[in-house]
Design a protein around this nucleic acid. Structure first.
Lengths: 157, 157
DNA sequence: ATTTTGGTTCTGTAAATTATGAACTAACGA
DNA sequence: TCGTTAGTTCATAATTTACAGAACCAAAAT
């Protein structure tokens, strides 16, 4: 399998992005190739050879992504190979993870306010505002999603 | 300076959180101690000794945080020490960074759609939805912030 | 039953990260 | 101006990460 320069570039860019999200380089590249390749499903061999990563690294990456629910595979009759593809639900999960992450930060910050004893309330004020904003955002998010779905429906009607 | 068990625990937890955001362990702990300590301003020595990290690590961490605008310091007359505190603007920046990060993802995904040539449009559909959602979110965010500020004002009136 | 092949596992290691400690510097106070 | 000390820099040590290569395994094809 061959990829265009633009595809290779995008794999790299997406790879770096996912590295910043805590994925190993090779794992991030595997996600990348499944995302940008013309064929939506690729075999172990195609991934390993096209990305130029060893069989062991490929095996580890694919199993890791399978275990974390980022990819899945199908098999075809009379063919021992597995055909891997990224799960499409994956995108909403990515977004949810970011939001949960902010929720975790918010929980920590709330406990900070409980634990530290500062004389000057000015130091608490900014923090309180931020906490309140995160709470507000969290509360409004379902609304927002609903609104978007409604609008999206109208567009496609 | 001494910290309560709860404070130490929070420093650790906040530290891990910030490590996941790409900060070095020691840097993350320094941010943590400035966040949870009873005194809002701490000296080099207090930070180094309380966190039990070497002077060099402390120096690197503080300078890194100064350069990236996460902390600042003041000096007092007749005292050679600097007194470090976290910048309060820091919180909004944290949030903005998360949103910009989603924007970057969105840009990559848009280019993915341009570059890959898939026969079956079903594979594009989910991706298109997600892109459209991120665009919608980005557009609505200013609104949301405005609404929150309005509500917040009423609360404090 | 044997071979082929799709994939796994184990071991070694290169490279990057992160911190330490000691030597050093510079500025301030006395 | 001299000593003290707050802070920096540098070499290096300790870990961790991430991958390759080879040996290995199991199921399917022949």
């Amino acid at each position: 399998m061959t990829l265009s320069d633009k595809q290779l570039e995008l794999i790299e860019e997406f790879g770096v992005y996912q590295e910043n999200n805590g994925f190993q380089p090779a794992v991030a590249r595997v996600m990348g190739i499944l995302l940008v390749s013309d064929k939506p499903e690729l075999t172990f061999e195609e991934i390993s050879e096209t990305l130029n990563i060893s069989k062991s690294a490929t095996s580890n990456a694919l199993n890791m992504l399978l275990n974390t629910g980022h990819i899945e595979y199908t098999k075809f009759h009379g063919d021992r190979k597995r055909y891997f593809r990224i799960k499409s639900s994956n995108w909403r999960d990515t977004f949810n993870k970011k939001m949960e992450d902010l929720g975790e930060l918010n929980n920590i910050l709330k406990r900070v306010l409980e634990v530290r004893k500062r004389d000057n309330p000015v130091y608490d004020e900014k923090l309180l505002y931020f906490i309140s904003f995160l709470d507000y955002l969290k509360g409004q998010l379902p609304n927002l999603i609903e609104q978007w779905e409604k609008q999206n429906l109208n567009q496609n009607a």
